[in-house]
Amino acid sequence: MWRALAALLLAWAMPAALACERTVRWNPDPPFTLLNAAGEVVGIDADIAREALQRMGCTVRWIELPWARALLELEAGRLDVLPGAFKRPEREVYAWFSDPRPTARNLLFASQEALAKWPLKRMDELPRVGFRLGVQINVAYGKAYDELLKDEAYARSITRQSTRLNLWQMVASGRLDGVIASEDTAAIELAELKLDQRIRATAIVVSDDAARFAFSKRAVEESFVQRFNQALAQMRREGLIRRIQQRYAPPQD
């Protein structure tokens, strides 16, 4: 009788013990993470993360966070997965990084007035002309932007906001000349805001570094990230990642 009771208790406890739920950050950032008409979190990063984690037997609990807060939560272990992160030495202290996910270029976008005034071709030209630049708080934009920050006077003049929406509105109102943003994200957001004729991409590619999924070292073992990479590799072989990208491709001019 006692053996039967013990077996019953073990069977009851196993689902809870084997349950795998991972918290994943999202924020309105099309085409990478966004809400669909049904109120579900979807997008390139969202669909890739959900599918890979499901293949590992895990469910996803989405947490909406601005970027700077998400980094803090990841470091503290209160967030498991942060999609779309660049692998940087200061982040490797507290995060594991997956293999690269599909790359999206960061470009410098500028108002039509700024484009007409300055035919800019390089980031290091911005301080010379007094270009009023806007960026998101604690977002990494690659080596060209890091070099720009070495000009301390110009670095202090850069406007930092938690959301791109604020930055686009500041460009539209004439308070900024331009913004650094993902090529695909900007195409979608500017079209939605009806600013795509007033704010355009410059010829300056700020970065084309590969973004990755970051995992909190406080919450996730390195072996978990290795299994995630195996799921990503299988999805690539199946052509699934390419199909997900095509599903959310921004409209072309």
Rank of each mutant, 00 (worst) to 15 (best):
Q252G: 06
K143D: 11
E152P: 00
A68R: 09
V220E: 13
A85P: 07
M235S: 07
D184M: 14
C58R: 03
Y141K: 08
D151K: 01
L126P: 01
G84W: 00
G77Y: 06
A38W: 08
P28S: 12
K143E: 14
V171L: 02
G178D: 11
Q252V: 14
R200K: 15
D196R: 15
N106Y: 04
E21W: 10
S98F: 08
P89D: 04
Q161P: 00
G134A: 04
L133G: 07
W62G: 12
R25K: 15
Y248G: 11
A76F: 02
I204G: 01
A186D: 13
E238S: 13
C20T: 02
L79E: 05
N229I: 11
C20W: 10
V225H: 03
Q230R: 13
R101M: 10
A203D: 15
G134P: 10
F109L: 05
A6W: 15
D80V: 00
I204Q: 05
W118I: 06
A95G: 08
S162Y: 08
L193W: 04
R236P: 09
D146Y: 09
L193C: 06
Q54E: 04
V220T: 15
V93T: 10
A38F: 06
L72R: 12
D177Q: 07
R156G: 03
T185L: 02
T185F: 00
A201M: 12
A203N: 13
R237G: 09
